[in-house]
């Protein structure tokens, strides 16, 4: 019935993978478009969007109002938990990355249940390192701030400044 043999199919798949690798090496570095901090109960406690200019000079910006960000944060919290429920494997703790047509999303969940989420334009990004730096900033400038209440929105100037630093270091890479 089928004119394509499985082997030909795999050749096709391997080609696609090789093409993907070529595209990735030629791909411009990814730019961060937003950073989110979600507390352990799914509440959004920090959100900041950045305008990012990609390799082709096009500006990417998230246009979300405050309500949409709150809603999307809690939707993300649920999807993160549900991905564990449908896992075919035993040790799954939640989603770490989502690949979409126009952007990528990376998530890091700390032992405390706090999630740091960032969205980037398509391209290569040291997601793990960047999320770790953002989490360190959260620890150093929010959690260690005596006026900060746990699980409440973060309003700390130093945290803002540090997040801006982390994002700048990624977005100004060439």
């Amino acid at each position: 019935m089928s004119t394509t043999t499985p082997v030909a199919g795999v050749a096709h798949a391997v080609d696609a993978r090789a093409l993907g690798a070529c595209a990735a090496s030629a791909m411009a570095p990814g730019r961060i478009t937003s950073v989110w901090v979600i507390n352990k109960s799914g509440g959004l406690i920090y959100h900041r969007a950045f305008d990012a200019v990609d390799g082709r000079g096009e500006t990417h910006a998230m246009r979300l109002d405050a309500n949409a960000t709150l809603r999307l944060a809690s939707v993300w919290h649920s999807m993160h938990a549900i991905a564990r429920k449908v896992s075919p494997t035993r040790g799954c703790v939640g989603i770490e990355s989502v690949e979409c047509d126009t952007f990528d999303l990376y998530c890091f969940q700390a032992e405390t249940g706090t999630k740091i989420v960032m969205t980037t334009t398509k391209g290569t990004v040291d997601a793990r390192g960047t999320l770790r730096r953002a989490h360190q900033a959260f620890y150093a400038y929010a959690l260690q701030n005596p006026f900060y209440e746990m699980e409440m929105p973060v309003r700390c100037e130093l945290f803002d400044a540090e997040i801006a630093n982390v994002v700048r270091s990624v977005n100004e890479r060439t």
Partner: peptide, 25 residues
């Protein structure tokens, strides 16, 4: 979720879809 988070929303039609997600395992 992907459609709403699309940074290019409104600029061009066709929408944005996700094609893979990865967890730790």
């Amino acid at each position: 979720f992907a459609r709403q988070m699309d940074p290019r929303r409104g600029e061009e039609d066709g929408g944005c879809n996700f094609y893979a997600y990865a967890t730790n395992d």
